[in-house]
Simulated scan of single mutants.
Amino acid sequence: MTNNIAEALKSAYNAIQEFQTKQQLKQQSRLIAVSKTKPAESVAAAYQAGQRAFGENYVQELVSKATELQGLEAIEWHFIGPIQSNKTKDIAFYADWVHSIERLKIAERLSAQRPSDKAPLQVLLQVNISGEESKSGINPADLMSLATQVAALPQLKLKGLMAIPQPGKGAEAFEQMQKLSLQLIQKHPEATELSMGMSDDWQQALCFGSTMIRLGTAIFGARGIPSHD
């Protein structure tokens, strides 16, 4: 398992580097290894291979893995799933980044519950860029207002945007996200992160300025059944 994960990581990083070079892309892009439904042992194997940033969709898994692997120096936990109000305390304690803020109420709870001895929580606002009823995220028209409110909260640091486009609509959605990101940066110069692109569309996302690519299956293999939390 360890060798397979190490090889998969190396292959992913090489593919990203080759694509960026070929397309002459200048932005720095990070790989977030999405470890949802995978055991802590798989995360540890990726860590030993040099990976530091890991994405979790389920609060129960975030708590379990962050607790078990707390001895790993500089490991970085990114919460990327939908957020329920009754789960914000655990996210505020265990996460380093949150990609999926879509409501002020959630942001306020995360800010209030972030321990004062921890660095501010790095946060991204999730945009429902394709307008899907089944998807989380704020309407693009309401984004700048929410950004101003979130940026003013203590213990949070607004770092940028996240989106999960409708399948098959990637290019159009990524282009819109890039425009929104540039608008956001004009008002919030530190909010430069753009989390978009997964296993089937990361190349397209990179072409439109993605700074964080979320890869799961490509690193850890097919997923098991999600845990309930």
Rank of each mutant, 00 (worst) to 15 (best):
L143R: 02
Q183M: 08
L143T: 02
V150Y: 05
L158P: 13
M212G: 05
Q70F: 07
Q48E: 09
G209F: 03
L158H: 10
D117Y: 12
E175A: 15
A95K: 06
Q51E: 09
G55C: 13
A112E: 15
Q113F: 09
L9S: 02
K157C: 00
E108K: 15
S134I: 01
E102K: 09
E102V: 10
A171P: 00
I16W: 05
K36G: 11
L143A: 04
N139Y: 00
S29Y: 00
K87E: 04
E175T: 14
M1S: 13
A49I: 07
L161A: 05
Q204V: 12
T148M: 06
D90Y: 06
K89C: 00
W97A: 07
S134K: 04
A45F: 05
N86E: 06
E102A: 15
Q122W: 11
E41V: 14
Q17E: 11
G197Q: 06
H188L: 07
S116C: 05
R109E: 05
S134A: 10
E41M: 07
G137H: 00
Q60H: 13
E133K: 08
F208Y: 13
I129S: 06
T37E: 00
P165Y: 06
D117C: 13
A44Q: 15
I185M: 14
N4C: 14
A45M: 07
D117K: 11
F19A: 03
I16V: 12
I138N: 09
P82N: 12
A45I: 02
T88L: 06
E172R: 01
F79I: 09
D201Q: 04
L25M: 06
Q186W: 05
K157S: 09
N139M: 03
K87F: 02
L124F: 15
F19E: 03
Q122R: 10
E73Q: 13
Q17Y: 08
L9W: 06
Q51S: 13
N3D: 13
K187E: 08
K187V: 07
V98R: 10
H99W: 15
E18T: 12
L25V: 01
P140E: 01
L215A: 10
F19C: 02
D142K: 14
W97R: 00
H99P: 00
L143G: 04
V127Y: 04
A151W: 01
I83V: 15
S42I: 04
P189H: 12
I5R: 09
C207P: 03
Y94I: 02
L161N: 05
S136K: 05
L184D: 05
T67P: 01
K10P: 00
V59P: 03
T37W: 03
Q126N: 09
L215S: 07
A6M: 03
E7G: 14
L184C: 07
A95N: 03
I106D: 11
N4S: 14
M144Y: 10
G209K: 13
A66E: 04
Y94K: 06
Q155W: 02
A173D: 01
E172W: 00
T2G: 15
N3R: 15
M212C: 06
E102F: 11
S100L: 14
G55V: 09
S116F: 10
V150P: 04
F174N: 02
I32L: 14
I106R: 11
Q186V: 14
Q183L: 09
S64C: 05
F220H: 05
K89Y: 07
E108T: 08
L146G: 10
L125Q: 10
D117P: 02
E132D: 03
F208S: 04
E132Q: 06
